[in-house]
Design a protein around this nucleic acid. Structure first.
Lengths: 203, 203
DNA sequence: ACGACGGTCACCCGAAAGAGTTACGGGGGC
DNA sequence: GCCCCCGTAACTCTTTCGGGTGACCGTCGT
């Protein structure tokens, strides 16, 4: 029974990853965890053949989780997931024994190819490479204006206030708002702000 | 020149901590960092006498940062900051060499006392203790109902929908909403959701 | 050259939201 | 005993939001 464990603190990314991994031929079970602690806690009772784990997670970070997991089970196969910003974290994780890494904006095909290969060859290690594309669990791409409007919302400003701040008419702000709602799948500004935080688009 | 470094990924908590620490007699400089990487990067050029660091941070977690910091500089004095939920992280950090820890809802007075003592005595270690109170940079205390309402907002639900979900009238939901706005200092629901994320009240 | 997309703005309209106020019962603290 | 906070609920009133639609212009890619 081939099983894969997906670990990411972002619920949206986690779901997207789970769905993507589930389509890989041969994978019969995909479990998920929200943080490193959860992975370690469950590893004793429930070992997977492969772990996909985010580098940046609250609590026990991905790097430390890799260390502790490998000291408990040197045979564990782990692939780190990362965004462009924390390449050093990836380097640490690979140094600690992770088999490779994937950028979060890797295409679904690249993700599947990597998972397939890692499952097929127990000794496989990823030759470092950079990936692009906009598939998988990548955050929706907002334009600069849309992010400015979203940030305004996250600071509690009304459309009119955002407009004054950005030297735009309120109607224009509303247009940007409507467009970013659609991209994010948000039903209102509160939802949009929440999704912005969950996707890491705003802080 | 006595200097203290405050490290927390939450901007609000960071500012609150910075202000609190700055009032400690003898402290002449307070610098801040948003994550472990930043602390490590700057440690070579700019060493502080004491570090206050959050346990849970994105990227390099507090525990791992303690390890790497102490392996680079065994004399570094570090106090971990934590919320009630990650006591294991604290245990790890203390095991790794942190001098002690403070709950984030410790009173400002307790924070100052701890910092004063840690600065005065280079060998000081905190005897484990639990603290309470609502001073310092603690997140506003929302009631269970208020958090439920805030979570509903973060999922894009209207007041009426939240009411149906929680078996409350829409008017009651609006009352909870108004009260949580006031506690958080939010001007509308989008702002409240943003503050909820920044304070770590919702995910 | 054409179309898709992004940035700008406008108008209409119904549905929400938010502020203000009142109220009543229960619990905890002083 | 009293007061403050919480949970519940209702009422009114004004503002804002969000959807729908249409429009003009510039850019980029094909």
């Amino acid at each position: 029974m081939t099983s894969v464990l997906v670990c990411d603190d972002s619920p949206l990314a986690r779901e997207a990853l789970r769905r993507a991994v589930a389509t890989v031929p041969g994978v019969e079970r995909v479990t998920t965890a929200a943080n490193g602690e959860e992975v370690l806690r469950r590893w004793g009772a429930d070992r997977s053949d492969l772990i996909l784990m985010d580098v940046r997670m609250p609590g026990l970070g991905g790097v430390e989780t890799v260390r502790r997991l490998l000291s408990a089970d040197p045979g564990a196969r782990i692939i780190m997931l990362t965004v462009a910003e924390d390449l050093d974290g990836v380097a640490l994780a690979v140094a600690a024994g992770a088999r490779g890494y994937l950028h979060k904006d890797a295409s679904r095909a690249e993700l599947r190819a990597t998972v397939t290969q890692a499952l097929a060859d127990p000794t496989w290690r990823l030759a470092p490479r950079r990936l692009r594309s906009t598939e998988m669990g990548a955050a929706p791409t907002l334009t600069a204006r849309e992010i400015q409007v979203l940030e305004g919302m996250s600071h509690g400003r009304s459309n009119a206030e955002i407009g004054r701040e950005l030297f735009l008419s309120e109607d224009t702000v509303k247009t940007h708002a409507r467009r970013l709602f659609k991209k994010l799948g948000a039903s209102d500004r509160a939802h949009a702000v929440a999704l912005g935080f969950r996707w890491g688009l705003v802080r």
